[in-house]
Design a protein around this nucleic acid. Sequence first.
RNA 1: GUGAGUGUAGCUCAAUGGCAGAGCACUGGUUUGUGGAUCCAGUGGUUGAGGGUUCGAUUCCCUUCAUUCACCCCA
Length: 419
Amino acid sequence: MEKLNALKGFKDLLPGESEKWEWVASAVRKTFHAFGFSPIRTPILERTRLFTRSIGETTDIVEKEMYTFEDWDGKPVTLRPEGTASVVRAFLEHRHQILALPAKFYYQGPMFRHERPQAGRLRQFHQVGAEIIGEIDPEQDVELLSLLSYFFQRIGISDLTLEINSLGCTVCRPPYRAALQGYFGAQLDTLCEDCNRRFHQNPLRILDCKKESCKAITTDAPASANHLCQECDAHFKAVQEGLSSLKLPFVISKHLVRGLDYYTKTAFEMTTQNLGAQNAVAAGGRYDGLVEALGGASTPAIGFAMGMERLMQLLPESDIRYSALQLFIVPLGEAAHQHVFPVLYDLRRKNIRSEIGKSGAALKKQMKQADRLNAAFVLIVGEQEMEMGKAVLRNMKTKEQVEIELFNLLEGVIAQISP
RNA sequence: GUGAGUGUAGCUCAAUGGCAGAGCACUGGUUUGUGGAUCCAGUGGUUGAGGGUUCGAUUCCCUUCAUUCACCCCA
């Protein structure tokens, strides 16, 4: 019989781990809410054209990583490989409902890219992202970065580095690109095969090549931050000043580039040394041209996405307490079971996480089960208890036992186990 | 898409060209109404799959699949 395992690069999230995810999700909601962002949920399936137009026709994502297929009516559709394009699409589609600019959205959900799985990289992976649409002010960049920085602090992940750079805009990027090609053009023989390919496709990417031989060349390559137009230069400086005014540490990384075509001006990454090759936990940047490219009026915007899987790996184990049971009921014999089964329902309606054992099973066996479920308390109701009209409540940690009147079981139990 | 590593019990891993092992986990017991610890016993395997070499392959070779890591790319 064929085993029907999950697809390569697709993972199940089981209890223990899934509770960690919910804990992070709840920290996301609280933090992003405080920073003025509202949740947005967009479809996972979109027209293919949305992504080819926004991410860039010649990027690897679009060329060979998207889950694209024909819908039943023949329309090309794609499982979203990232979140920004959908958010901008939704923004444009419902523009009339959005009263104030900038619009500030956050989202969390699965993304799909057909890559070879690796540490911190799956085919279905999960991102949390935030977007600010409709404001060019560098203070927005700073606000977004402060959110990012604070969020990691809040969930207890330290030793991250905020790296920033400016990629320029439609005015200054073309001449910078030309300057880069001028510099690298003279050294194509020394650059690796990949870099020779990048030279034509996207010369900026040569800057973050990992080969030592290429790094030696890129060290002295022209930096985009030195080729900014007046506007971009002022913007970049304002971002740095803003970060400093909030005492947020950052480093300027002159070789930081972005993979997606739509980025302009500010680009940034939160990086770690603890994740192997996948060192970027969150990344993003300004994309002032994207809204227009997707058919809207010229509208500046900035956003980021962080990888949940990578984030989870950085989270210390001990910080997470997954749901233990508050009460385990041990009925011994059918009469006890009948008396206590309705109480289980009552307890649950009072938000007390509780379970009941099988009345036919031996006390010892039920105690063991209670222990496995990590129950804080055990309520024992057997023949003796039924006769005396009192149940026994055992604190599993202290081993203390108290008696509770059967006629008032629910209130008695709640009084004892509520913190 | 490219390269390298690894596939043996539910899990983590040993071993040997000649009867497949340990620890953990699981089940039961340690006097019949009190969990975790100790001790004792037990269940559990087509050694990923297919083929080849061999008297004999889990071991050597080939193919394939799975998985991990790295490159590419990216969060």
